[in-house]
Every structure is written in C-alpha cells, then in structure tokens.
Nucleic acid binder design. Structure first.
Length: 521
RNA sequence: UCCUGAGUAGCUCAGUUGGUUAGAGCAUCUGACUGUUAAUCAGAGGGUCGUAGGUUCAAGUCCUACCUCAGGAGCCA
C-alpha cells in the first residue's frame, strides 16, 4: 500500500513523494530526473517535507534543458545554460534570448537594471555562453508566455560581437556553410539538425517495432564489383613511393589488406547475407561515392538506410517503403512541429502542406511502361526524347511527380538493360522487378528491387554483363543454399531530410558536407 | 566533368554608354527610449572592387587566364 502525490512534473518525468507501510519515506523518480532544487510538499496527512535534489555537473541534464524549463510552473527557481541568440537593450531593462538547442524556441531572460554588474553585462553579446539563474515568471511581453527573471549570470565563454560572424539577421546558406562550426547555433540549422535527429530515431523505431535486425555492414570493402559508382580507395601504401610489380603495376600484395580495397558504396549485398538468416534486417550507416558530382542533391559521404526482407516481393517492398516514409513524416510532425513551422515560414511555404498531404494520401504507382506512355502523350517538348527503353531523365521524373501526380510516385518494372544485375527478371524477359520512389522537387528518394533469387538466372546475368564471376562467389552461394525470395531498398537520409525541411541544397542537411574539392571541418 | 551565371564593407546587395572623392540596408561602436521580439530612432567608424596579366589618357565597369561559389546537366541516394 503506497500513497504517492506528485510534486513535480516536467521533461516527461514525475517526482513522487509518498509513504508506504514498508518504507517510511519513498522518493521515486520516474522516467526523467527533476531539475536540481528544493521541492516542498505539504498535506494534512504528513508534515511539511523538503526534498532536495542535487545533480553533479557530469550528469546528463534531463529536466534542465530549456525545452523542459518551458513546462515548469511560474515561480520555479531555474538555471538555464546555453548560447545567446540575440540581446536587446532598452532603458532599464535588457532582454537576452538564450538557446541550448533542445527546442526551437529561445528562452527570454530579462535583466533589470542593477541586477547584474555593468562590467559583466558588457561581455554578454550574441554568441556568448551563459548560465542564467533566476525565477520563471509570467511574461509581460507578447512573444512568450513565460520568461526568466534574472538573479545571477555566469559567463562560461564570452563572444566578441564585433567579430562573431552570426548576426541576428538572415544569412545566405553559402556563407553559413563557410562557418559550419557555428551554423548549428542558427535558427535554420538548429531546426535542420533536430529534424535530422528525429528522422534517425523514427527509422530505428519503425524497423525495431517490426522485428528487423539492425546490422552493421562493412565500411571498407575489397570488392569493387558493386557497380554503384566510383569508389574511394583505401590504402596504407606510401603514395610517393609505391611498390611495383614486375610489369610496372602497383603491388597491392604489400597493401594493408593484401589487395585493393575501397570505401563502401552500398551495404546491400552484405545485407542480403543477413536477411538470409534473420529474415528482416536493415542497415543504417555512411556511404561513399567518389563521383565528381556537383549538384544540390549529391554528396561524397552520405547516410543510407537499406532494409532487406526475406519472403518479400516487389509489391510488399513498395508497401513497406510507403509505410516507412509515412511513419517518418508522422514522427517528425509529432516531435518537431515548431521546426517545421519555421521551415514553412522562412524556407519553403509548401512543406507543411506537402508532407501532411503525403502522410494522408496513397503514393501513386505506375509501371515504367505506363510512365513512358504518359510521357509520350504529354503536351510538352523534351530535351531528352522519350522512348521505351530509355533511362528517365530529371525532367521526366519531375514531370511525373510535380505536374501529373503532384505527390510521390513509385515507378516499377524497368527494362533490364538499365538496371543492376541483381534485380529479379520478370516473366516477360524484358523487365526487372525494380522500383524507384520519386518525390517532387527531390527526385529519386528511394531505389529498390526484388532480388534475383534463382541461381541459374543470376549466374547468367553476371556472365552476360561480363562481371567477375569469382568475386560474387558468396553472393551466388546464397542462391545455392536455402535461397528465398527477397527484396529491399535504399533510402538516402539527406534526401529525406531535404524533403521534410524544404532545404534546397543537400550540403545544408548534413553537419559537415563532403563534396568534390571540399572537406573542411 | 560539361553549360550558364556570380565574386564590390563583417553580411546581403546597388554601382548607367569606361570618366572626379565607390553607395545602401543590416551588423559593429556611441548616444536616445521603463518591456523588447531580426526592437526602434540619431550619429560614427569600416573598401587594394576574387587573383594575375592586358587594352586605354583613364578600368569596379572592357579582354585573357586562373581560383572560388551557385544554378542546370550527367552519375545516383
């Protein structure tokens, strides 16, 4: 028999004070830890009790983020730590906007004249890092319901306003990219990386809830046989003094792995190994392409999610992809609405409408053959002529998603000639069970297929495309021993974040972009 | 990599058919204002015009090369 009464709520947690017949006193902390401070509790049944909660600085400060402070009651004594976004002065009162990245909204701290020494106030400008102590009070201003009435300030690190590059004004994305060490403190990038974080969490949650095994496929691979694009070499050889073979080539036998090795361009083939043992798996990790691509949609280092599912055909694959994208959207809308509202106001005034529309409506499904027919009948002149058998160009994909259907479109069953060797051949002998999910503005956001599980068909395709048969010995083995129909796809994380935020350049949705000629920070 | 465009104050930009001392807004600094929301108002400081050549009496402006950035294309996630 326990009687408990909550004395604090916030940050998703509750602090109970209570009494049971086993213990005379119980303090129970559920889910989250309350901020340090003294909590008073009084009821007719018990004497007045004070509970003092103290945290060490090393402790994770759940309950003390600015996000949590907004949930606290007026009158609470709080300490807020963060970086100054802006400072505004008026006669007799100074306003400091403090942000610690935990939420979009800044905490407004109000310094009344005389509360803080002049000498200290002079050091507080945009960019400074502070601890502000005071009392949470109802705000007199219109922009916020509560604010922090300042009692004391500790300056962890000042920032000289004359040289601090981030100003309380709109900056160009190009300029912010040059100061990637400071841009996370800006409104835009704060929102971008909170959304990116939420997307990542949703991805794991989606697959874990469905029994998928998270598997780490290798970053370094010795097979350059995947054909997904140019690869970065990995070597410990002295490039100024390369060991040579007798005929003048490079002697890779002396290299670290005893053979040429590369950074991975895809974890799919290894993913198939694990799907052949754990049924449903997913990978989520960095991927590298050494293409000399200079576009707003390409990076040399990006993150990719690749589920692989046994006992799954292309139709199932398509349904999982659609459910997956909708799940991510729902989670981001649920957890990052203020960030999305910011994007909708300042970056792209259609994002909120677009993503809520996508979450509510079904994706359009067309076969490649039907898509070509639509393009042929379109009243539009194409820079690249349309005919059955062509690889669709950007202009064709954009026409389908932005003009014809105005929503994500799944195109399936492409000609075998323009798709990878591992995709399952259809009975018509001309097309393969491939699918691309095309999103308006972004283009291809997901690429996937049902895999060829028939040993003889796969071997024939490897030979027809003159691929090194030996290199695929283990991939072929999977078809020899307990082969199962299976399918999977790859989602580009950054493209998903672009889609959700409306950001126009992929370099602005990854913390530190790597592109040809650029690897700063 | 190809095509197109752009590099002018800390940031975002204007700068006429080549012509005297290169402009604005924001930021910074100083002052004003009892509560601001990218505060407002007044004043001040701040520039080898991307780099290197060239044409010309005269180049931010015209020409050439290079560098950087952006948009489009290809490759793809």
């Amino acid at each position: 028999m326990v009687s408990c009464i909550a004395v604090w709520r916030g940050g998703g947690g509750v602090l109970f004070w209570g009494r049971s017949n086993r213990c005379r006193m119980d303090i129970e902390v559920c889910t989250a830890t309350p901020p340090p401070g003294t909590y008073h509790f009084c009821s007719p049944a018990f004497a007045t009790v004070s509970v003092h909660i103290q945290h060490s600085l090393a402790m994770i400060r759940t309950g003390e983020y600015i996000k949590d402070i907004f949930t606290m009651a007026v009158g609470t004594a709080v300490e807020a730590r963060g970086w100054v976004k802006t400072r505004r002065d008026s006669k007799g009162v100074t306003f400091i906007q403090l942000n610690d990245g935990s939420c979009f909204k800044d905490l407004q701290a109000v310094v009344e004249q005389g509360a803080i020494p002049e000498e200290m106030m002079r050091q507080i400008g945009t960019g400074a890092c502070l601890k502000i102590s005071g009392e949470l009070v109802a705000s007199l201003g219109a922009g916020q319901s509560v604010e922090l009435k300042v009692r004391d300030i500790l300056i962890y690190g000042p920032a000289d306003p004359a040289t601090y590059p981030l100003q309380p004004k709109r900056h160009s994305m190009e300029f912010l990219r040059e100061i990637a060490h400071l841009r996370p403190r800006s409104n835009t990038f704060g929102a971008v990386f909170r959304v990116r974080n939420a997307v990542c969490y949703a991805i794991h949650k989606f697959f874990q809830e469905r029994g998928f095994l998270y598997v780490h496929t290798p970053i370094i691979t010795a097979s350059d046989a995947e054909g997904a694009g140019a690869m970065f070499g990995v070597t410990t050889l002295d490039l100024m003094n390369l060991p040579r073979t007798e005929n003048g080539g490079i002697n890779f036998a002396e290299d670290f792995f005893g053979r040429p090795s590369y950074l991975t361009v895809s974890g799919q083939l290894e993913g198939e190994i694990f799907a052949s043992a754990f049924t449903n798996i997913y990978t989520f990790g960095p991927t590298f392409r050494a293409e000399n691509s200079n576009t707003p949609r390409h990076l040399a280092e990006f993150w990719m999610i690749e589920p692989e599912m046994s006992f799954c055909d292309l139709d199932d694959n398509r349904r999982v992809a659609e459910e997956f994208l909708k799940y991510i959207i729902a989670h981001v809308v649920d957890t990052c609405l203020p960030d999305l509202e910011f994007f909708n106001k300042w970056v792209d005034d259609t994002v909120l409408e677009t993503i809520t529309h996508v979450a509510e409506s079904d994706f359009q499904h067309v076969t490649y053959t039907d898509a070509i027919t639509i393009l042929l009948n379109a009243d539009k002149s194409w820079e690249f002529p349309v005919a059955w058998g062509i690889d669709m160009q950007s202009e064709h994909e954009r026409y389908l998603t932005e003009v014809v259907f105005k929503r994500p479109v799944v195109v399936t069953d492409y000609p075998k000639e323009i798709k990878a060797f591992y995709m399952r051949l259809n009975d018509d002998g001309k097309t393969v069970r491939a699918m691309d999910v095309l999103a308006p503005r972004i283009g291809e956001i997901i690429g996937g297929s049902q895999r060829e599980e028939r040993h003889d068909v796969l071997l024939e395709k490897i030979r027809a495309q003159h691929l090194p048969e030996e290199a695929y010995w283990w991939y072929l083995d999977l078809r020899k021993y307990g082969s199962a129909p299976h399918a999977g796809f790859g989602l580009g994380l950054e493209r998903m974040v672009m889609y959700l935020t409306g950001m126009k350049n992929i370099r602005d949705v990854i913390p530190f972009p790597r592109t040809p000629g650029s690897a700063d920070f």
